[in-house]
Amino acid sequence: MSSLAVTNVSVAFGGVHALSDVSLAVDAGQIVGVIGPNGAGKTTLLNVICGVSRPDRGDVTLHGTIITGWKPSRIAGLGLGRTFQTSQLFPGMTVLENLMTGLHLRGHTGLIAAAFRTPSMKREEAEMRERALAALDFVGMRAFAGRSGTALSFGQQRVVEIARTLIGEPKILLLDEPAVGLSVPRVAELDTLLRRIRDERGVTLVMIEHVIRLVMGVSDRVIVMNSGRKIAEGRPDDIRRNPDVIEAYLGRQGDARRPAP
């Protein structure tokens, strides 16, 4: 059984078919890259999986449970984490508080426990703080715990955001263009981080990405989309050689290192 399966999903916005009959399955412990030109339906696909958009047809299955139409917060509770294209750190919180919010589902404190600062509430807070610091250690950002998220660089915000999602121990992590706006050395660091998340944490990753070097380097499998359809799927090497992909996405010249505009 695959960890995550999308079965015959279609989504239309007005007359635009954002997704047409898309199916895919993701096995546990893999990094799956999703590529495709702008407007190919990649972000819509992510939104359908995490419950932000509702598909017109088809189903999403997570660990054998059909989650189509569930609220995003409920899907998150089933072990699905997600990061966004633009920074979604909470600007009103420090980095540490951001991380602690990532543990929301692991906590139980409600109004009553908060009001009386019960021993279990205090224990939970201390534990959350500890785990938040450990998660910051994992991504090398502990020194920034007390800083405002908005004071960090673009790449640092991205990494903190990944840590914030990871801390809730999702089984599957969806990443929407994690490398966007990063310099070449930062992309290399991201490459390492993604592998470590898979290998050390055993998290399955599904990543939308335009930086071909990263996708081809890190992915176990690559899915190629174009105009709302899946046009190819396979190992990075096979995708590189696939004539449909070269024509539709990488350009006619077959220069695999540079995506066509």
Partner: peptide, 13 residues
């Protein structure tokens, strides 16, 4: 308040 969508993605109902 800050990011409703991200809050939901972290499980805040």
């Amino acid at each position: 308040r800050d990011r409703e969508m991200a809050a939901q993605a972290l499980g805040v109902g």
